[in-house]
Design a protein around this nucleic acid. Structure first.
Lengths: 222, 222
DNA sequence: CGCGTTCTTGACTGCTTTCAAAGATGGTGG
DNA sequence: CCACCATCTTTGAAAGCAGTCAAGAACGCG
């Protein structure tokens, strides 16, 4: 097993073996505070973790892409730290357990790397929200999504499938959908990306990277 | 051992047993990308995790309080996901290892809870930065710090020691120090808190909680 | 007591939000 | 195959929260 995320071939493998669960788009996958029996592996589709404020404001904590885990934190009385919703139809499976018997060392290692990646992305999300302009947030986020999709072989040429509305991007990046729209148009005008019909084409990755000082995590390909 | 954070008594215990390391205020504790041998337990003092942008902008990812761990993520080729700096003089010790031999089950459990708490606070930080006003961010953050200090017995009456500048609060909450100053003055005028000489007195915790819908994590006292 | 750091204040700028409404898009049923 | 409807995207004008720049006051330490 490669270091996380899980490769397409491995997903296919798991798809055949493990019990699966299908959730339709817009349906809730789990609810903050709910008891979670086991980590869930996202076999296909997009999901999002979020928290709500009492007045209805929503913050997307991060998106969950194919091959990624939904619940990293496991402990006695395991409780979901956030809600999660399916952005598209998704297929989930219970992630194989890493028991302590010793013959799942590779699996444990994969989970550890996955947890580290998870934290890395949470930290980067904090940096985006705290210290980046709208333009930088969108650029940095798109580059991160591309990076994560690359890891599971879901980037075709310079294009990725981005099955989310501008309102979801807004709730992810702490903006309004109106401002996301205007900022994306600026990016289009500058020849950075093309965004149409749920697909994003990266026209100038280098310029984007330079704009936000984008760095991929260093420990993935060790 | 109680569920994390580690209690004052336990800190005292570890203080006597484990090898320690002292770092002076303003000194760097660890650097993003550096190899980390073992998790570090903060025995006393305040620290902060942060990331920098190339142009000098700084985002504090979170503060580290006495009794809390500095590096949760462990995996092959363990690399620090963020830099960390001592905000006051601090005392650190290597956290006792949770080997897989079986007789450290309690310790492992404590680390798991600690990791979950860590993620909970990161998620709340994302919500603050993404969807809260300046006033709400400061109120919510102060309540969280109070909650975490309560867990280690460092709240005397309604007051806590807050050894940070307004500029650090600004870098934590994605604001400027000028705006933090103005917002704190609003809170003073409204009789919410008193902030003077590194001490914060909570004059109306209930009103603060209502302002931000503050909820403590549910799984700590299980 | 002197100096550097931190806090405070004022005036002005500007990025982002808000409110509203007009297009575009895509899926569904007649 | 096309009309229809819900959802999503786009646009405009005005308001507001937070940032910037600058300078003076207060604080703490040696």
């Amino acid at each position: 097993m490669s270091l996380a995320p899980v490769s397409a071939a491995e997903i296919q493998l798991l798809r055949d073996v493990q019990p699966q669960q299908v959730v339709r788009a817009r349906r809730e996958i789990l609810s903050e505070g709910a008891v979670v029996e086991a980590p869930m592996l996202l076999l296909s589709g997009w999901a999002a973790r979020y928290r709500l404020l009492m007045d209805g404001r929503r913050q997307i904590l991060g998106v969950v892409l194919p091959g990624e885990l939904l619940c990293h934190q496991q402990h006695r009385g395991p409780v979901a730290l956030s809600s999660a919703v399916a952005l598209t139809d998704v297929v989930l499976s219970a992630a194989p357990a890493a028991d302590r018997t010793g013959n799942t060392a590779g699996l444990e290692e994969a989970y550890a790397v996955s947890a580290a990646l998870n934290e890395h992305y949470l930290l980067q999300q904090i940096v985006r929200l705290g210290r980046m302009s709208a333009l930088e947030r969108i650029a940095d986020w798109l580059l991160e999504v591309r990076e994560r999709l690359l890891a599971v072989g879901l980037v075709s040429g310079n294009a990725i499938h981005l099955p989310v509305t501008q309102e979801l991007i807004a709730d992810t990046l702490g903006l309004t959908s109106v401002h996301v729209n205007r900022t994306i148009q600026t990016m289009r005008r500058e020849g950075l990306v093309e965004i149409r019909g749920g697909w994003v084409t990266f026209l100038n990755v280098d310029k984007l990277r330079a704009m936000v000082d984008f760095r991929a995590p260093t420990f993935t390909r060790s």
